[in-house]
Computed example of a mutant assay.
Amino acid sequence: MGLKLIHVGLGGHGRGVARNIVVPSADFSFAGLVDKNPEALREAGEEFAVANANRYTDHELAFSELEADAVLIEAFSPAHYEIAKSALEQGFHVLIEKPFVLHLEEAKELVALAKANDRQIMINQNYRFNATVLTLKQALLQQPLGKPLFVESHFFCNHIGRAYQLALENYILLEMTVHHVDMIRFLLDTEITSVSGKTWNEPDSGYLGDPHVQAVYETNLGVPVFYLSSLIVQGIADPWEGVWRIQCEQGTIHLDDLGEGYGVYTVNAEKVITKLPLIPNKHEGIHGTLAEFAEAIRENRAPQPSGLDNLQTLAALFATADSSRLKRHVAIEDYFRN
């Protein structure tokens, strides 16, 4: 049976998700649309054939009047907490575009609210559903070159954000690095235990928050991850998943372009380079997120990644910022003390 979805946020990105992800979905159809901008709402309603009576500029009113199974939040990140809290209080399952929220205590509150109301809350960490990332994870599980010893990852781009993004204190961490920190946890099947990090800015970057970050993430596997990223570099940009080198006992595993296009490669001790075939993936990227969300609702189980799971990713991000500010090593467990 199909699930009914209230889609909140129909700006450029949100409308693209509606058009390219929700409309083709075999699991969901629109119960209603919500956007504060009446013109954006009208255009989306006409494009997706949603009746005028099911279009709202007020999410509270939409949640109180519409019959639906779930809410998809594609509004800008400063509004995530308010909208998600309202949706959970009204009894809807919730799928939120990353970042979950902008403050860890808000995330903890929403996770507790979802549990109290027996609702599922999922964060769109959609790189987990990319064929490149799944292939890299399989290579790490199979250990063709022995156990991993350490990891190096970087992500560089020249990205001018929207006005609210330029003003966010931790934009690079919460909306870019969030993907790569989640990948660390997913790929290594581990938790980050501590961070030593630094963020910094340039005089004319246009960003209020720091657009550069470097960090060392220690994990409970004993495998450190060395990470570097920037939003304002000139020259060659990296793919969204970033560039990864996993040093193993008998060679390296890479997510990179080592001569045959971006993908997953192994390099053995004799320096023989092998590109691995990508794992067939029925639902790529956010298509996979939406399919997993639907399956979790139907099976009454936690989706991956759930809001609870994402607390660990958020804590690592805030620890990176705090490490830079305090100029010291920061333990993740400090964010979960009662």
Rank of each mutant, 00 (worst) to 15 (best):
L5H: 04
V8F: 07
G9C: 04
L10V: 04
G11T: 03
V23P: 06
A26Q: 08
F28H: 00
F30A: 01
L33M: 05
V34K: 03
L41R: 01
E43H: 12
A44E: 04
G45H: 00
F48H: 10
V50G: 02
N52I: 12
H59F: 15
L61K: 15
L61H: 08
L61E: 14
E67T: 15
A75I: 01
H80L: 06
A84Y: 03
V94L: 05
V94I: 02
I96C: 10
E97D: 15
E97P: 02
H103V: 09
E105D: 12
E106D: 15
L110P: 00
V111I: 07
A114C: 06
N117E: 15
D118T: 11
D118Y: 07
Q120C: 09
I121Y: 06
I121L: 13
I123Y: 10
N124L: 03
Q125R: 12
F129D: 08
T135E: 04
L141R: 11
G146F: 08
P148M: 02
V151N: 02
H154M: 12
C157F: 11
C157A: 13
N158G: 08
A163W: 02
L166P: 01
A167R: 14
L174D: 02
T177G: 05
M183I: 05
R185A: 09
L188C: 03
T193R: 09
V195M: 01
E202S: 11
P203N: 09
L208M: 13
H212R: 10
H212I: 06
V213M: 10
L231N: 04
G235C: 08
G235A: 10
A237T: 13
E241W: 03
R245L: 10
Q250L: 07
L258W: 08
E260K: 14
E260L: 14
A269D: 08
K275E: 08
L276M: 02
P277M: 06
H283S: 05
G285W: 02
T289H: 01
L290C: 07
A291Y: 09
E295A: 14
A302G: 07
P303N: 11
G307A: 06
Q312M: 13
L314Y: 12
F318Q: 05
F318T: 05
T320C: 11
A321S: 13
D322M: 06
R328V: 05
H329M: 09
V330P: 00
D334C: 02
Y335I: 00
R337A: 03
